[in-house]
Nucleic acid binder design. Sequence first.
DNA 1: GCGTAAGCGAGACGGTACGTCACGTCTTAAC
DNA 2: GTTAAGACGTGACGTACCGTCTCGCTTACGC
Lengths: 225, 225, 225, 225
Amino acid sequence: MHPRRPFVKTRRLDSFILCSVTPNKTPGTPRRNDRSRRAILDAARELVAEKGYAKLTIEAIAARAGVGKQTIYRWWPSKGAVLLDSVLALSQNGEGEGAEQAITLPDTGDVEADLKALMRATAAEFSDPSFEAPIRALNSEIANDPDLAAVYAEQVAAPVEEAKRERLRSARRAGQIAADTDLDLFLDMLYSPLYQRWLLRSGELTPQYTDRLVEAVLRAFPPAK
Amino acid sequence: MHPRRPFVKTRRLDSFILCSVTPNKTPGTPRRNDRSRRAILDAARELVAEKGYAKLTIEAIAARAGVGKQTIYRWWPSKGAVLLDSVLALSQNGEGEGAEQAITLPDTGDVEADLKALMRATAAEFSDPSFEAPIRALNSEIANDPDLAAVYAEQVAAPVEEAKRERLRSARRAGQIAADTDLDLFLDMLYSPLYQRWLLRSGELTPQYTDRLVEAVLRAFPPAK
Amino acid sequence: MHPRRPFVKTRRLDSFILCSVTPNKTPGTPRRNDRSRRAILDAARELVAEKGYAKLTIEAIAARAGVGKQTIYRWWPSKGAVLLDSVLALSQNGEGEGAEQAITLPDTGDVEADLKALMRATAAEFSDPSFEAPIRALNSEIANDPDLAAVYAEQVAAPVEEAKRERLRSARRAGQIAADTDLDLFLDMLYSPLYQRWLLRSGELTPQYTDRLVEAVLRAFPPAK
Amino acid sequence: MHPRRPFVKTRRLDSFILCSVTPNKTPGTPRRNDRSRRAILDAARELVAEKGYAKLTIEAIAARAGVGKQTIYRWWPSKGAVLLDSVLALSQNGEGEGAEQAITLPDTGDVEADLKALMRATAAEFSDPSFEAPIRALNSEIANDPDLAAVYAEQVAAPVEEAKRERLRSARRAGQIAADTDLDLFLDMLYSPLYQRWLLRSGELTPQYTDRLVEAVLRAFPPAK
DNA sequence: GCGTAAGCGAGACGGTACGTCACGTCTTAAC
DNA sequence: GTTAAGACGTGACGTACCGTCTCGCTTACGC
């Protein structure tokens, strides 16, 4: 989307949905107005929340941000890209200016407890109305735009996935899950049902549900006795 | 969407994606031109496949179907509804004219073998390019339009879900899975990972993947020894 | 610009600038909203007079006319074409619905008196502020758009020119100007100086000026003694 | 437009369209890049000839001239002013650097012959395609922008008009035209028809036409016998 | 001979208007 | 008597330029 200078520092994550990376004013070329950039991302998020993604228009974003349309088209290739960035920006507001972060998940030594906490937090995040609309929208875009999907996968999903895998490796080392556990399959089974329920509104995301899900997944990858 | 008279007959399903129901010329009421209806649904499907859902327009459907726009607006409330119907129509072409069907899944007595076959078939169906575009599109609509989601859930998902549950009940009776298995959780864990991978393009849908998925899910619900 | 059905009737002209022809609802094809058409032409004329041609925009015309932009683009190929039509419509408002007219000029038998009156009237017309702006604008368009120039020449200029020539033929028959007078040259010498002064604002259009102009031109084509 | 120091020298004109004056680097004040100035004027002329005046943009001029937009806005108040200067520059390329010239017209003693030659040359100049587009454009601007019209009148038209009048005074002294000839009216009648034909494309500019025009105008102002 | 202020290229910015597309409603000619 | 055809008001699209505004840079004075 635009040049990024990866300056990594560590950050602890408490849920799973996403987290990422602000662009970084590459000191060389593009003299970009950061006030406008922020205003655009804020406006996009607000408008999605207010009107829904279907009624989100570039013109409305520009108007609310007090910005020319061209300033949006100059820096983002599509409405979906703006939305992606606006969600990214949201996920790290207040963070150290322009720094990438490595992500780690809590590790108390008890994988079941940790995963249950994580899943409950994730479910809560899904229910937060200020996340609901933009992420649902972003999801639609990603499902239909392979380019955006690739950016999302690289910028957003990959680091989070790696953090999840790292936590499971720790559990595997501790003998809490099978030594030959396929971490990706484990994560799919853990995470997809939650995501799917939310996306298709096919059921409530209760703590009971997530707890039982964690238990079932752990049963599927039992350590050798 | 429009009045339906459920006239049920039985049909065997070999995969999971969907299956349903054409509206039924309720003999009394609306003098509806079935030639037009078919032309519209065909045109919608073709156009989604050709251009993608984002570029699907009512005007293009009407033009290709050789139909006035009004004829579409008269019978469907939204683009998503046309698409839903067009996918439904596709899923049962060649079937007995205008009849609803009860659905059953294969039951050889070996639940693992049956589920592996089912999941492989489902994965194959996801890869069929003539299903790919419209279903992906339909999915976006459903994720963002709760009304459509409700119709989908009732008309499409419910009967399939019931068939899946029925097959699992049979397995439970046969002692192949735990007596206290939560069937919905079982199905979520089985089905969501596949669906999710496809939707977000986050991985290949290989037979190896589906087989290992089935095995893992079965391990999570072991019958009492 | 659009189909016209020429249904001619006679009309007396008292000045030279222009006069022409409304389009005629060709009964066949285009079901055109005449209320919109009129509103557009009126709005165009008003806006040119208010803001000047340089600041005349299609959007402003559409807005003032209470009409969609597309309705303008549907029927006129360019801003200049709208303007031409709007001036044409103006030149014959109140005239018999949709009828073309043949034009005749006053003929008292005294060519000098008639031409002086005609030139004074024309000069007065040029000074009318409600003609000033649109005609000046139209002129620029014509000077730079050969297509529009052709329409103008055919629809507007030709009938007026013919009427002028006819008046001069009458004078020639009456022995008031030379028998071998080149009518086109005569008219160029009579009319261009007036037009030029107005267009380039290079001098006042006083009755003295037009009178002396008429006298000089008549001196250039004296009848044989 | 910008400061000029009039340093006059004499120049013989052979036609009527225009002639004038380059600005002059007033040695004290503005450190102006003459290479840029020339590049801008050249670019403007080329682009008008290539694309037409309607599609001439400041951005395109700047781009072709390899110049920042601000450099244009710094020195010219409007597109029309650039165009005027570019035409002026054209009319005296090769002339002595930065010098104004007094203009004289050929005077062989035979006013009819001289005027015929002059009008033929002028007509030829109008037909030169490299003059056609920019002058036509300039004309539109002048017709719609009184400020520009004033600059044009003062810088371009006035000296030429004076030269024309001077030639006619000579003819009047020589008794070739009437002693009480209104020189401005004479020039209007001589010049406007030619200009008008060209501007509105209402007829060819042949030598026959200009010759007959000269003859007719001379007939209108006969010397006393 | 060395800052220093100007002119300069580049181009981002807030805007306005463009000409096009599709929407959903409506009217009409013709089958 | 329904339907295809398509005009209509509406509103968003993505693009082109506008005229203003920084940016670094170079360039030529004036101290």
